Simulated assay, not measured.
Amino acid sequence: MNLLTPAKVREGLEEVREGRAFALGLPLTFPGGSSLNPNRLPPVHRPNLRHGLPNANCVLGSLSPGSSDVMNDDLVVLHTQYSTQWDALVHVGSLFDADGDGESEPVYYNGYRAGVDVVGPSNPADCGIPGPDGTTTVDLGPVGIGTLAAHPVQGRAVMIDLAHHFGTAHRVVSYEDIDAVLHADGVDVRPGDIVTVHTGFAQRIVSMAGDPDPAVLHAYGAVLDGRDPALLEWITDSGIAAIAADNYAVELYPAHPAGSPTSILPLHEHCLFKLGVHLGELWYLTELAAALRAAQRTSFLLTAPPLNLPGASGSPLNPIATI
């Protein structure tokens, strides 16, 4: 994201011709339930307490005689990567011999160390949804999402519309496929661009109205082939700033078997661990993709800051595209 220089912001602004804006974030309550990912639960939304009373439709006259106010104040227990999200660089690291001593240790982008720079609990009791007296137990450090949030995420973005070219049947997409789409649509991918990938997955989630069908969704739409060396080389050589897709994981998960030890998320490993290229998941891209195609365009201004939550492994967001 350091490639999002003032020059890249100006490039993005040059793509604004109509002044039409598109919200690319799903409701934070979507996909719905936990059947797609049992490790990520939907938000818990509750009123807080005001002097021991429920702070929902709270008539303040009972607390402040003479007041005519009625108040609501609330809280959310939120899994940061449940819905539309940015992955922080700390989201996926690797066992890597960073010391050159023949022993692999858990490290993250740029050599940040587990247990030193990235600190978390080992006791399961210190994990999961806390009780009323629960405290913060993790600080994922400088490779957490707070580092990204400290700098505005805005610049030129391009659309790769896989759903238009390949439909929504399950397909593992190679660099050859990507290259064909780039040429067919005249997509001009420049260094520092944010690449968005439309598969139709998020639109299918929306159509399920918070009750997702895993049997349908796990076999729905295109996914990138993280085992394709040509695709990984293109990501490196293109100099892009980030990739955001409308599906889970961006890539095929788990990836095709490739011996051991090896990453089951090789595109994540390549982008987050090796390159420092952030990944976005579950973005809502269908309306934007249709508008761009109708206008015979593929590029736009993207504004996509994460929440400024220091030390977190990811963040929800409501990105805005302007064309």
Rank of each mutant, 00 (worst) to 15 (best):
H165T: 09
A312M: 14
R50Y: 15
G280P: 10
L78H: 14
T136P: 04
D126Y: 14
V76Q: 09
G200W: 03
P124Q: 09
I323Y: 00
L49R: 15
D139T: 08
P6T: 11
T135D: 13
S313E: 05
T136W: 04
F22C: 03
P106S: 01
T303H: 10
L182G: 12
L272H: 05
G226T: 09
I240Y: 03
A304N: 11
L275W: 00
N57D: 14
Y82Q: 01
G131M: 02
G186P: 10
C271D: 10
V195K: 06
A258G: 11
D225H: 09
R10M: 14
G32C: 04
V116G: 01
R17K: 15
L317Q: 12
P42L: 00
F96P: 01
Y175Q: 10
P43G: 06
L53A: 12
G134V: 11
G25W: 00
S122V: 13
L26Y: 05
P106T: 01
P6M: 11
A23V: 02
G144C: 09
L26V: 02
D101E: 02
G280N: 06
Y109T: 00
G19W: 06
D73T: 05
G144L: 05
R20F: 02
V181L: 08
H183N: 12
G226S: 13
G12C: 06
F96K: 00
V90G: 00
G19S: 07
L95A: 08
E14D: 14
E11R: 09
V172H: 06
E15D: 07
V118P: 03
T84C: 12
S83E: 08
L78E: 14
G144M: 11
A114K: 02
V77M: 14
P254G: 10
A244G: 08
N48V: 14
V9P: 00
D97T: 07
A114Y: 04
V16Q: 08
H170V: 01
P130H: 08
L36E: 06
D87L: 15
T136R: 11
D237R: 14
D246M: 10
G25A: 01
Q81G: 09
V181N: 10
A258M: 03
V107T: 06
A202W: 07
N308H: 15
E15Y: 02
T135G: 13
Y284G: 10
Y82I: 07
H91K: 12
R156P: 05
F273L: 05
P27W: 04
E281T: 04
G221N: 05
P229L: 09
H218P: 00
G25Y: 05
A98H: 00
E176W: 01
T168L: 03
I264H: 12
S64V: 15
